[in-house]
C-alpha cells in the first residue's frame, strides 16, 4: 500500500497509464457506440429503442462502481491518512456524478418509449437518484473544505455512509416489485443475445478506461497544483 502511495512513484506510473487508458478507451467507445447505433439488431419487443442500453448500462456501471471506489479511497484516507487516497477520492467524485446523471437521463429517455413514462418512484429509480445526491453531497462537502479541515473528514464519512445505497440499488429489482426489469447479466449467464452483447461490452470496457483516464488526469492536475502551492509558499518564505 505504502509503495503505491508514494506520489513520485504514482506519477511515474500515471504518465504511462494516462495515454494508454485514454486512447484504448476512446477506440473501444467509438467502436461500441458505432455498432450500438448502426450495426446491431433491433430488439424483438422494443425495436430500435434497445440501442439506448449501450450508453445506459455502462453509465450505470460506472456510477455505482465509481461510488464503490470513492468509498474505498475515502476509507483509506480516513484510516491511513494517505494524501494520495484523498486526491483519488476527489478525482473520482465528479466523474462518478456525471456518469450517474447520464444513467438517469438516458434511462428516462429509454423509459418513455418502452414503459410509457419518463419517471416512476420505484425502488431502482429512486435509489439511483439517491446515488446522485450522495455524489453531490460529497462534492459540496469536499469543495467547502480547507487544506486539512474537519470538512474533509465529513466528506469521507459521507462517502462511507452512502455505501449502504449500493446493495439497495443492486438488489432493489429483486427485493421489491419494481417497474425496472431484473438483471440481464448474472454470473450464471446472460439473457442478452450475442449480437447485442458485443456493443454492450465494447462500451462497458471503453467507458471504464475513459473513467480511469479522467481520474488519472484529475489526480495529476491536483498533485501539480499542490506542488505549485508548496513551491510558491517556499519562494515567498525565501524572499521574506
Amino acid at each position: 500500500m505504502h509503495r503505491f502511495a508514494n506520489p513520485a512513484r504514482f506519477l511515474r506510473i500515471a504518465r504511462v497509464a494516462t495515454p494508454l487508458t485514454l486512447w484504448i478507451g476512446l477506440a473501444l467507445t467509438v467502436a461500441g457506440l458505432y455498432i450500438g447505433l448502426f450495426a446491431s439488431p433491433p430488439d424483438y419487443q422494443q425495436g430500435e429503442s434497445v440501442r439506448i442500453m449501450y450508453v445506459h448500462v455502462p453509465a450505470a456501471w460506472l456510477g455505482s462502481g465509481g461510488y464503490l471506489s470513492l468509498a474505498i479511497a475515502s476509507a483509506v484516507a480516513l484510516i491511513w491518512r494517505h494524501p494520495l487516497a484523498t486526491i483519488a477520492a476527489r478525482a473520482i467524485a465528479p466523474a462518478g456524478a456525471a456518469f450517474t446523471a447520464i444513467c438517469l437521463v438516458s434511462g428516462s429517455l429509454w423509459g418513455k418509449p418502452t414503459w410509457g413514462t419518463y419517471w416512476v418512484w420505484d425502488a431502482r429509480l429512486t435509489s439511483m437518484l439517491v446515488l446522485l445526491f450522495l455524489y453531490l453531497g460529497y462534492l459540496a462537502l469536499s469543495a467547502s473544505e480547507g487544506e486539512r479541515g474537519e470538512e474533509r473528514r465529513a466528506a469521507s464519512i459521507l462517502a462511507l455512509v452512502g455505501v449502504i445505497n449500493l446493495p439497495i440499488i443492486k438488489y432493489s429489482v429483486e427485493w421489491w416489485n419494481t417497474l425496472h426489469q431484473g438483471p440481464s447479466i448474472k454470473l450464471t449467464g446472460s439473457a442478452i443475445d450475442g449480437h447485442m452483447l458485443l456493443p454492450l461490452f465494447l462500451c462497458l470496457g471503453g467507458f471504464t478506461l475513459l473513467f480511469a483516464a479522467i481520474v488519472l488526469m484529475r489526480m495529476r492536475a491536483m498533485l501539480a497544483e499542490q506542488r505549485v502551492e508548496a513551491r510558491s509558499r517556499r519562494l515567498a518564505e525565501a524572499l521574506a
Partner: peptide
C-alpha cells in the same frame, strides 16, 4: 429523434466535456 439521438448526444457530450 426523440429518444435514441438525445441519449447518445448527452452521453457523448458528457464524455467529451469530462475528458
Amino acid at each position: 429523434t426523440a429518444y435514441i439521438w438525445p441519449a447518445y448526444a448527452l452521453t457523448i457530450g458528457g464524455l467529451v466535456a469530462l475528458l
